[in-house]
Design a binder for these strands. Structure first.
Lengths: 209, 209
DNA sequence: CCCTAGCTTTATCACACGATAAATAAACAA
DNA sequence: TTGTTTATTTATCGTGTGATAAAGCTAGGG
């Protein structure tokens, strides 16, 4: 990044919480583009302020990054999704498609996916935590609802296979997003179509379809 | 990384090509662990040499990184895989399972997968090139062989769906590797079992199974 | 055994980095 | 209008960075 410091007009004075929230929001898109090793000077330029300003709001660069993690990963989950996934008044395939439509509306964009991958490679705990959450709130509910629909019981014997099947659905959908938003390569179906097909294939993989 | 420079014994003197190859190989595992922003001093410490030595063999840090890309991405493909995938004397599912068993033996390790993700986030051309290659040498052959086996014709109408179906197989398998080798989280089946199941599900998604 | 080619190290440069302290200026209350 | 508060900027520190130049050392040929 080229940090040309052109003659700047003094940054507008803003209330503490407003500026703080603005820094978190804009820094997220900045680090998503340039990685967490990008400099605080370039960040300041991106924000339209000067470099030391950040230190009024966060004790260190890393503290700011931690805050971004929180806003991105913890804020991703919408609590109505738990109810949506387990609403047995509706056909299970319909629920799964609607859930993945909504979930991917949140995570399938360049900013979210790149921050997720950057964080994962940094080896921060929050990504392992996030995967554990995905398993608890998506993978296992999906298994449970499919099992209930088909009339199968989850046993210690078939559980490993069922877990990996559900993870495979998740992974297939996720990788579509990686291709499109991280690598910028071609995809051949709209998101919704791809999800519908994936859910169909997944549901059909259970014994009595 | 802590670059403690303990009293070192002078590095063994080695012929040009030997040392050069050693640097590429060891630097690959170094950058896989610490990312491409890790310093040349820490790299030298990792190699058991001093920092300026690298510059006898590569004009810049980035030139070394480019060489690592080549060795990892171009070197990944084994030419017998083309023949394996299209060997119509054998059942198609068997071929797909054997191919993915072998392919994942090469790429499913912490070093390969982390370098792949690091490179992708850096936005280097080689990753887009690699994805194009995957599509040409895996995705399309898989489609073609399945179509031939089932007796279906690939048309402009069904091609997008068939492409995404094959990508979904690839993505599901790949994400298993990401979970295991990048995030270090639990997986519930051995690699071979997961592949066998995935290929089965994929094959069954075609009309006449 | 010595000598030279060339592999390896020491010393150093110019600059970029995260972070801190002190000065400046804009908003708001009296 | 004036005084106080606090958001923002300027100036700077100590350290780490990729890279270069010159000196040091070791293996192999004679």
């Amino acid at each position: 990044m080229n940090s040309e410091v052109l003659p700047r007009t003094r940054a507008a004075r803003k209330p503490f919480e407003v500026r703080r929230a603005e820094i978190v929001r804009k820094a997220a898109s900045f680090f998503a583009q340039f990685g967490f090793d990008a400099t605080t000077r370039d960040l300041a330029n991106w924000l339209g302020t000067t470099q030391p300003l950040m230190y009024r709001y966060f004790p260190s660069k890393n503290a700011l990054i931690e805050e971004i993690y929180q806003s991105i990963f913890v804020g991703a989950w919408k609590k109505e999704w738990d109810a949506l996934l387990s609403d047995r008044t509706r056909p299970v395939r319909e629920r799964l498609v609607e859930f993945y439509d909504q979930y991917t509306d949140v995570i399938m964009n360049s900013e979210w996916m790149r921050l997720y991958l950057f964080a994962g490679l940094r080896g921060v705990d929050i990504t392992r935590l996030y995967i554990a959450r995905v398993e608890e709130r998506i993978i296992r509910p999906v298994m449970r609802e499919m099992a209930a629909d088909i009339g199968t019981t989850i046993t210690p014997e078939n559980e490993p296979k069922l877990l990996e099947l559900a993870w495979s659905l998740q992974g297939g959908i996720f990788y579509y997003g990686v291709r499109k938003f991280v690598y910028g390569t071609a995809v051949y179906q709209e998101k919704h179509e791809m999800i519908a097909t994936s859910v169909d294939v997944y549901a059909s993989s259970w014994p009595k379809a």
